[in-house]
């Protein structure tokens, strides 16, 4: 009796889960595990047969592919800038917006707006700003320094990519930080004020430790999205000039779908990307979870 009831329960469970599992298995699990398999072969788009090559693709990607290695360094630099700037700006805006009265809603609405827009659209609009508007402003005003080769010169296009990515991403984190700040118990802040703490001290010693869990999430989300950055770079520079601003995702995309259809080799690069993101986010979560305080 007990056994049959349990069995019936399991069957109902499977029936409810089956449709989701089917789509998930076919379009997510199969390509994920298939990708691991193909990364060990010389599969390409031109030849229907392929052979096992072991870890040759991985060795080639990490030792013999200067563009890929360069794209890893470029991405790491981009991620480092984004983690610091995006979280600092989002936190600053969250604190400032929360301190406003009636204008709070307006600022929140405006700062979040770019998140509604695809980074492809946003990237093209910024391309217009960088290539047309800034040079116009420089020509017709004193701000001569604005007239740079923002897109054509890799030194500047790195910052162009950072600016556009911040524009698109800060508002999202700001909303998360605002929610966290609103969760800080008011009596704690009042107690600090009575003890003579100024605004900055209250923030440093009360608010910041209390919203530490949100900081963990914010940095996790930034790491995750910056390592996968694609749209903004694609729209702004297309990875150029040459391949100077190529991020890892763009390098994989070109390897597989633009240049030579080396699917097996590109799969190995895709696995390397996965491993980098996985390891760094695990380390980050471990490190930051350990430092969270109890309220």
């Amino acid at each position: 009796m007990q056994w049959t009831k349990k069995r019936k329960q399991t069957i109902t469970l499977l029936a409810f889960v089956f449709p989701a599992l089917l789509f998930y298995a076919v379009f997510m699990l199969a390509p994920a595990f298939g990708g691991i398999g193909y990364s060990l072969t010389d599969w390409n788009g031109l030849n229907p047969t392929y052979h096992w090559v072991g870890f040759a693709n991985y060795t080639e990607a990490l030792t013999d592919d200067p563009y890929f290695i360069k794209s890893i360094w470029f991405t790491l630099r981009f991620v480092a800038f984004m983690v610091v700037l995006q979280n600092a700006l989002a936190l600053l805006l969250a604190v400032f917006v929360e301190s406003r009265g009636r204008s709070k809603v307006w600022f929140r609405t405006i700062f979040f707006m770019p998140n509604m827009i695809s980074m492809i659209i946003g990237g093209f609009m910024w391309l217009f700003i960088f290539t047309k508007v800034l040079s116009y402003i420089a020509e017709h005003s004193g701000f001569g320094f604005l007239d740079q080769s923002w897109i054509g010169d890799p030194d500047f296009s790195f910052y162009a990519i950072i600016i556009v990515s911040l524009w698109g991403g800060v508002g999202f984190l700001m909303v998360i930080y605002i929610a966290a700040i609103q969760g800080v118990p008011q009596p704690l802040k009042e107690a600090a004020a009575i003890d003579g703490a100024n605004t900055f001290q209250t923030f440093r010693n009360i608010t910041l430790p209390m919203i530490y869990p949100a900081l963990t999430i914010g940095i996790f989300l930034t790491l995750n999205s910056s390592f996968k950055a694609f749209d903004a770079v694609y729209a702004l520079t297309g990875g150029g000039p040459g391949r100077a601003t190529q991020v890892i995702a763009l390098n994989i995309f070109e390897e597989a779908f633009s240049f030579n259809s080396r699917y097996g080799y590109a799969s190995a690069k895709a696995m390397i990307l996965f491993l980098i993101v996985f390891l760094i986010t695990i380390v980050q979560l471990r490190f930051m979870k350990n430092r969270e305080v109890e309220a």
Partner: peptide, 10 residues
Amino acid sequence: LIPFHSIMIT
């Protein structure tokens, strides 16, 4: 945790 770029080829 799996990035889209890691599954897209397959």
